[in-house]
Design a protein around this nucleic acid. Structure first.
Lengths: 242, 242
DNA sequence: AAATTTAATATGTATGAACATATGAACAAT
DNA sequence: ATTGTTCATATGTTCATACATATTAAATTT
């Protein structure tokens, strides 16, 4: 691939360099720890100042996509899958891992949820709520079983098209924006139901991820729990401390 | 507050400016959309180049703490309420859950770590590193087994007092600040070693939390992995999305 | 051959200068 | 009072230069 910067474009040079670096990050030449061209050469090759190139690489280093080491060079860093600053829906999360999702089963029903869920949505007595159960995975196997409950106040009827991205559906059809996520992660042993759904042995380890979803006004909109086969994914988070 | 940069310090100017800006972000003078001093004045006041100041503000803009607008100025951006921004040491985490920690065993040794750890610290050949193994829990039972490896470049000898909070020890005795944590969480089944250490059955589910710790310059300082009994704790994280 | 020293390489830091352009305030015209 | 123009202000972009320092490779010494 020809590495090129258009000096006559209205797009600032450092932004063009950034885009070019993003492309380079995906190139086979630079996988498995292979070094990028050094800054002095690359900037010269592109016909821009080294400082201008560093503005671009600074951005990508901040994003965790590149790793620069003094005296060594610059490499693609190992992907960090999710920054806790921006939580993702399951579909988005899998997409970011390069996994193509298959919905094996989807079942909707009206059911009385566990007390925890009733409390979350602010109900003191038992109320039936829209319950969605899904078994999802990739082409080769099913690896997660989801249960979702939706706040009745949203007005979902159960005939919506749940093949669409869920939070998009909520936003477009119900004007509800999913903003805040509280997630709780534990390990549990698969009971007979989970074992059957995920094709594993009873007692096998399961990563259980429970999520409480709120809108911008912090009103509860959805509760979901995902039971993941233990070898299917790794939950990653990067954070800083003061 | 007097705004000050120490030109004789070994700490790079742009990092000092960054710390100073972080302090300013918390000052009442700059809340509620109040403008920061402009770049030309502030850099002049601090006795540093405007470009150097911009390195610092670039960082904070990337972190979402500051908002800069061309022709207007710079303001503190609205706080994102995200607990994951501040990761905690194990002790702090347990304290926040009201659990009083007991160290059941602590063992230090010099050992060759797994390849992943060698790579993390940037070694291509096998090097012995300080390895710490701990079984910890509360008064009633032991529920987590930790393995830590420390970057040899830190200079730890192995005779340090590890009863002290670890990151405090690193900061006070080695001038190393633990800043960034990358964590990976999975569920695994207990092997015979873990089963014995944690008094559980072989095959029982374990929450495995692997952590890569970096200093402010993103240099690796510690790797640790914690194997938690599945009913002992819940990992919680709250985050927002755009 | 192994250990030490030196040299080469690559990123990290910092500066000053020049110019571009978005924004908001002030002023003029209607 | 409203709209349009001009000017001042503040950040955005880019460059060239110089030096610092971590890392690796090469040369020298033991």
């Amino acid at each position: 691939m020809k590495l090129k910067i258009d000096h006559h474009s209205s797009i600032p040079l450092h932004l063009q360099a950034e885009e070019l670096l993003r492309k380079m990050i995906k190139m086979p030449d630079y996988q498995a720890g292979k070094l990028f061209p050094n800054e002095v050469n690359l900037s010269s090759q592109l016909g821009i100042s080294r400082n201008t190139l560093r503005q671009a690489t600074n951005k990508l280093v901040h994003e965790g996509l590149l790793l620069r080491k003094k005296g060594v060079g610059t490499v693609v860093s190992k992907p960090v899958d999710s920054k806790a600053k921006n939580w993702m829906s399951f579909s988005q999360e899998m997409k970011s891992k390069g996994i193509e999702i298959v919905n094996y089963t989807t079942e909707l029903s009206w059911a009385i949820p566990p007390m925890e869920v009733l409390n979350f949505f602010g109900y003191e007595k038992k109320v039936k709520m829209l319950k969605m159960e899904r078994v999802r995975g990739d082409k080769k196997n099913q690896f997660v079983y989801f249960i979702s409950y939706f706040n009745p106040k949203l007005g979902l009827r159960g005939d919506e098209d749940f093949n669409r991205p869920l939070y998009e559906l909520l936003e477009n059809d119900f004007s509800v924006v999913a903003k805040v996520s509280k997630e709780e992660i534990t390990a549990v042993a698969a009971d007979s139901t989970l074992a059957e759904l995920l094709k594993i042995k009873e007692g096998d380890p399961i990563l259980k991820r429970k999520r409480f979803v709120f809108d911008p006004g912090r009103r509860p909109i959805e509760y979901n729990v995902g039971y993941y086969k233990s070898d299917s994914i790794v939950y990653s988070v990067e954070s800083e401390r003061d």
